[in-house]
Design a protein around this nucleic acid. Structure first.
Length: 737
DNA sequence: GAGCACTGC
């Protein structure tokens, strides 16, 4: 096997990386002791962040969505409110906390928040910013006695951070320190420090547009630029102004970013940047001498080069774009390992988001003695899951990126292609090698290629349709929408298309103002189009059934996909056939649902699990749909809808007419040559091969999704009667008045 | 007749 040659001179690479990460260069450091100069150090220093152990631990058991647990209730915690749990433990933790890099800058940070309405904190991971800074603010009394919110892009992070910080403060979780995420609220009115998902804060805006219960909002991980983080950042500017004129206490804002974007936030808010150094182990970076076209083969060779030359312990983490690549590489490694004598044993592990929690668990189990773990992972391992013991990272430099293209004069299409990652993503991946000790990162691309990468991944707002974002802002208030400032302004075309779609749904009127229907849609935790189906069900008296269907449309398909084994493909086809309806995939989904709920209601937990395995269905996905359904049901009750009305006895066509009201723009007509043409912009679409309508030659179809991969594919497809289209136009028009 | 990264309410 030919060896891959890497450029051993990691130094040049690292200084380049360092330059990129020092946007504050030139601005006067607020506190000298924790500021690192844009360094001439030989290595990129990444950190080992104590917090992440907590995050990983909780990720282990929180991958399924639990319903509310009475033993966890905030009411119980409230009785013991603020009571010191264990003073000794608290003091022990305080000593550990004081070792964190951010403690040297404690006073300077507090002063900065006192003296400025907004500050930007550029904190490397491992600085302790997420756990410590909110506590500093709490202890210093900033925020006029009101709450401090700390937002996170991911729920597991919000939950485990709250656990950790409540331990540090020596109080019961849910009393002084709490959290609030979907399906799980561990906070009460007396909670002073609240870790929450950015989406949760977004929802609170709907009922309290000036966020009057908060004194400080801390936006963490702002550099990730999630859609919801961007919406909050753009809204906060006017909230601060308007709180002033409403004679409310001022709102303080802290934006925390890990790297490259700090300067952008600082300019946006005209705010000072404070720099906090992280705690870190050196990661030596090797670039390939020449670009490697076949990255699966390149990874294979590199794995064995590392394995045969590097001592144990030291696990290998390989970043690949997707399941298929992971399976191919996994098979090749086994093949070689079986045929050649190896210095140590190896254990091959796969890691991607759609694996069941039990399968994900396996990567956390320590390898037996004299064995090296080789973990083949997608992007989940970049931010969401941290694995201990990794010392070597192999980076393919690629990831699948979802992007929405709004097409001229019509509706847009979602795409999913393998694309080169960004510089900050590459550095994040490399950092995964240095969490516990010095590590190495092998990039399967040249330094030149690295330098040509975009600095950051495009923000989500540029990769998704704006229907949700615009409706949400308008639902907070028209004033909020008018005053909203974008960190990155979307194209005029994308804005117009979103307005057009919302108008079609009856969510805004011809002047673009939100309607009563629009307000109802925004209040439901669903895409506007899916939420529209529920309103349609109210008119047609089948809310119960549509609750189930909407929940199913909000999650991924419960039928397992992918993997290359032909036997598994056959089994998947088997599952689809078993539940198939002649009407198409929407009714088929309901067939799965009915069968699943029968087992849930009659069987034990074990029975449900067994049934899902036997039918090749994802239990986790169905469980999630159940949680969403129950949340939707509550929401509908609040809006005065009769959720008991169930269409199981009614005909499937009524259900499909409801679906069509939310999906009226996703309709195509069969042509003489057997292809389908969209009615909105005359584009050609194909029925995705996973659809049960693939062979049925239905004259007119509607679909929930349109994805451009090797062709434009309609997914989740149902047959409809063309005459229904007129009725839908009538209903939606009526809804907008 | 194709292959779907990752979040969130």
């Amino acid at each position: 096997m030919a060896k891959i040659k890497f450029d051993g001179d990691g130094n040049k690479q690292e200084t380049n990386g360092k330059r990129e990460t020092s946007p504050v260069k030139g601005s006067a450091p607020p506190f000298a002791s924790s500021v690192s100069s844009p360094s001439k150090k030989k290595r990129i220093y990444f950190d080992a962040d104590g917090m992440d152990d907590g995050i990983r631990d909780s990720a282990r058991d929180s991958n399924h969505y639990s319903t509310h647990d009475s033993t966890n209730s905030p009411h119980k915690a409230r009785r013991k409110a603020h009571k010191k749990v264990d003073i000794e433990q608290r003091n022990r933790m305080l000593e550990i906390r004081k070792q964190l890099p951010i403690w040297t800058g404690r006073e300077a940070l507090i002063d900065a928040v006192h003296n400025n309405d907004i500050i930007v904190v550029l904190g490397e991971t491992g600085s302790g910013k997420t756990t410590q800074l909110p506590q500093f603010l709490l202890e210093s009394g900033i925020g006029s006695g009101r709450k401090i919110a700390v937002t996170q892009p991911r729920r597991v992070a919000a939950v485990s951070l709250a656990h950790r910080v409540s331990q540090e403060t020596g109080t019961q979780l849910g009393s002084l320190v709490g959290y609030s995420v979907r399906f799980d609220d561990m906070s009460w009115k007396g909670t002073r420090l609240k870790y929450m998902t950015d989406g949760m804060l977004m929802r609170e805006l709907l009922s309290d547009e000036l966020l009057s219960q908060y004194g400080v909002i801390v936006i963490d991980e702002a550099h990730e630029r999630t859609l919801r983080t961007d919406l909050i950042i753009g809204t906060l500017k006017s909230i601060m102004r308007r709180r002033h004129s409403a004679a409310l206490p001022p709102l303080k804002v802290v934006v925390m970013s890990a790297t490259l974007d700090a300067d952008k936030f600082a300019r946006f808010y005209n705010a000072p940047v404070l720099y906090v150094k992280g705690r870190q182990h050196p990661v030596r970076i090797f670039n390939a001498r020449e670009d490697i076209q076949d990255y699966v083969d390149g990874a294979l060779k590199t794995i064995f080069q590392i394995h045969q030359t590097q001592p144990l312990p030291g696990d290998i983490l390989v970043f690949l774009p997707g399941q298929e690549e992971i399976n191919t590489l996994g098979a090749s490694i086994s093949l070689i390992a079986d045929g050649a004598p190896l210095k140590h044993d190896i254990s091959i592990l796969r890691l991607y988001a759609s694996l069941s929690p039990a399968q994900q668990q396996k990567v956390f189990v320590n390898a037996p003695a004299n064995t090296r773990k080789i973990i083949l992972a997608t992007n989940v391992a970049e931010t969401s899951i941290t694995i201990a013991g990794v010392r070597h990272v192999i980076d393919s430099g690629l990831a699948r990126e979802r992007k929405y293209y709004s097409s001229h004069g019509g509706i847009g299409v979602d795409t999913l292609f393998v694309k080169p990652i960004s510089k900050s993503s590459a550095m994040q991946r490399a950092g995964r090698a240095g969490r516990e000790s010095a590590g190495t990162c092998y990039r399967l691309y040249t330094e030149r290629t690295f330098l040509s990468l975009p600095p950051t991944t495009p923000p989500e707002i540029e990769r998704t349709n704006l229907n949700f974002a615009i409706l949400q802002l308008k639902a907070v208030s028209e004033e909020t929408f008018r005053n909203f400032e974008w960190l990155d302004e979307p194209s005029e075309e994308a804005m117009q298309q979103a307005h057009m779609n919302l108008f079609g749904l009856g969510a805004v009127n011809e002047r673009g103002e939100i309607t009563e229907v629009g307000k109802k849609l925004a209040g439901m935790p669903l895409d506007p189009g899916i939420a529209r189906m529920l309103l349609a069900a109210q008119t047609r008296e089948c809310v119960g059934t549509l609750l189930s269907l909407c929940a199913l449309l909000a999650v991924d398909s419960p039928i397992y996909t992918a993997t290359s084994a032909s036997q598994e493909q056959e089994e998947q086809q088997h599952t689809r056939d078993r539940f198939a309806s002649r009407h198409g995939d929407h009714i088929s989904l309901l067939h799965i649902w009915d069968a699943y709920m029968d087992v849930v209601q009659s069987g034990s937990t074990g029975d449900v699990k067994e049934w899902c395995v036997a039918n090749k269905l994802s239990e986790r996905t169905l469980r999630r749909a159940r949680d969403i359904r129950s949340q939707l049901s509550h929401q509908c009750l609040k809006m005065g809808m009769d959720v008991s009305v169930n269409a199981h006895t009614q005909d499937d066509e009524t259900i499909l007419q409801c679906v069509l009201e939310g999906m009226f723009h996703n309709v195509a007509i069969r042509q003489g040559d057997g292809t389908y043409r969209q009615i909105v912009n005359q584009g050609l679409v194909k029925i995705h091969p996973t659809s049960c309508l693939l062979q049925r030659k239905a004259p007119c179809i509607m679909y929930s999704e349109l994805t451009l991969t090797t062709a434009t594919y309609a997914r989740t497809v149902s047959a409809i009667h063309p005459a229904w289209l007129r009725a839908v136009a009538f209903y939606n028009q009526r809804g907008s008045m």
